[in-house]
Design a protein around this nucleic acid. Structure first.
Length: 426
DNA sequence: TCTGGGGTCCTAGGACCC
DNA sequence: TCTGGGGTCCTAGGACCC
């Protein structure tokens, strides 16, 4: 039986989320900015049409934005995550086998579903639109890499009506289509590789599909051998329908303003380590290492630059915020150098194992472990029910002069009681 | 003034072992 | 003058993704 993998991708996801609650933004040029209102990370079609590229620093765009009346939002991750969950659980009803690939994308296995897949895709689109208000495109093909491309075609070619099934095309039709797509659009072919591929005479997706997989493997790596197989309809990438535990957990942020003060960095590192520990406990894991890093602003070329990281091993695997923060602070003080204007700090938890796999030794202080576990559970419970950050280490500080800027954030319409949408009285 | 954050996978090369 | 070979493990760094 022909395999049918669908990729459902939300259009301009963050912008679409904002529009759900402010329909008057429909048809207007809208962008959503990254943390600190730094870069453009989501663009409405109107903005794409103006030629504004992804990931451009916002301050460089202010003139253009003024001229065209572009409306900018700070990122509102609470809202986006909540709408994403709604989209994903609706999609789950369309297939027994779903892989949630990212906040706005999901693979669905449609193999064996006895429906016309093109019509089925339209049904998916209408359901998401009606129930959540988010527009999506669907691509269907025998492999994930091809499904990604089918989705690309669905987005770009109006004649497919936002849903494209490669399985419904014959070989000539498909190849003709692939010949019109630049090789850089292929999933896994990044900017670096495009240059090398072009030198080898590979311009279009069809060129890559027909190229010798063996030679590509020699020139690049096994990754490219797989990509070529996938382009030829041989599925090498399985659908990952179980959400696996993270092998590393990162929490890092740029500061709202540069700082050269150790106490500021200490507060930030405690805040980030606390957040990382919370994520660690959410997946019921323990970490044996915590890496801390700090850096100056690399874009300020004339300013003195410094960046340093240090990995702090922990005496035993833990998920205790206090122990992780303690190790992180210790590391920070080792790498800190006075006299630099720091822009960013981060922590990374590594050597992560499931809590159930904690190695036992003769010298375990079981009572202390139990007390720590109970304390962390209580901490998490309070923060879950009373709002995150209700209970935290004092070391995080209360003034947070370094905290990030978010000057234009919409309300958390679906996750906070006091930010619910209120309909104006008629 | 102002340039994001969080992940995974793969490879090369060094250290070490027998 | 002549100085092995094969294997594993670990880490750093590159490339890529959204």
């Amino acid at each position: 039986m022909q395999r049918a993998i669908a990729l459902v991708d939300c259009n301009n996801f963050y912008v679409s989320c904002e529009r759900v609650f402010q329909p008057k933004l429909e048809g207007k040029p809208v962008v959503v900015l990254s943390n600190n209102d730094g870069c453009v990370v989501s663009r409405s079609q109107e903005v794409k049409d103006l030629g504004l590229k992804m990931a451009v620093p916002w301050y460089q765009m202010k003139d253009l934005a003024k001229r065209h009346g572009i409306i900018a939002f700070s990122s509102n991750y609470s809202l986006y995550a909540d709408l994403s969950n709604r989209v994903m659980s609706l999609l789950a009803q369309f297939s027994p086998n779903q892989e949630v690939y990212s906040i706005d994308e999901s693979f669905l296995d449609l193999t064996g579903i006895p429906a016309d897949h093109t019509q089925y895709a339209q049904q998916i689109r209408e359901t998401i639109r009606r129930c959540v208000g988010i527009p999506v495109c669907v691509g269907i093909a025998p492999s994930k890499t091809l499904a990604k491309l089918a989705n690309h075609v669905a987005k770009k070619n109006a004649r497919f009506g936002s849903a494209c099934d490669f399985n419904a095309l014959n070989e000539t039709e498909l190849n003709d289509l692939l010949a019109t797509i630049a090789v850089g659009e292929v999933w896994g072919v990044g900017r670096r590789s495009v240059g090398k591929l072009n030198e080898m005479g590979i311009q279009s997706v069809l060129d890559l599909k027909r190229f010798s997989a063996k030679r590509l493997r020699e020139k690049f790596s096994v990754v490219f051998e797989r990509i070529v197989a996938e382009l030829n309809g041989v599925a090498c990438l399985e659908l990952d329908d179980v959400v696996s535990d993270k092998q590393q957990i990162i929490c890092s942020r740029s500061f709202g303003a540069l700082t050269s003060l150790l106490p500021d960095l200490e507060q930030a590192v405690i805040a980030y380590a606390s957040r990382a520990a919370e994520k660690l406990r959410q997946q019921h894991s323990l970490a044996s290492g915590i890496q801390v890093y700090i850096r100056t602003n690399p874009h300020k070329e004339r300013a003195p630059q410094y960046r340093q990281a240090i990995l702090m091993p922990l005496p035993e695997p833990t998920d205790d915020t206090r122990l992780l923060c303690h190790a992180a602070l210790h590391g920070l003080r080792q790498i800190f150098r006075a006299g630099f204007a720091y822009q960013k700090a981060g922590v990374m938890l590594t050597e992560i194992i499931p809590r159930s796999a904690r190695p036992r030794t003769l010298f375990d202080d079981v009572l202390a472990q139990q007390k720590s576990h109970a304390l962390m559970q209580t901490l998490d419970r309070i923060n879950r029910s009373m709002g995150s950050g209700t209970l935290k280490l004092l070391g995080e500080g209360t003034d947070k002069t370094w905290a990030m800027r978010r000057e234009n954030m919409s309300k958390r319409y679906t996750t906070e009681w006091d930010e619910l949408m209120v309909c104006p009285a008629r």
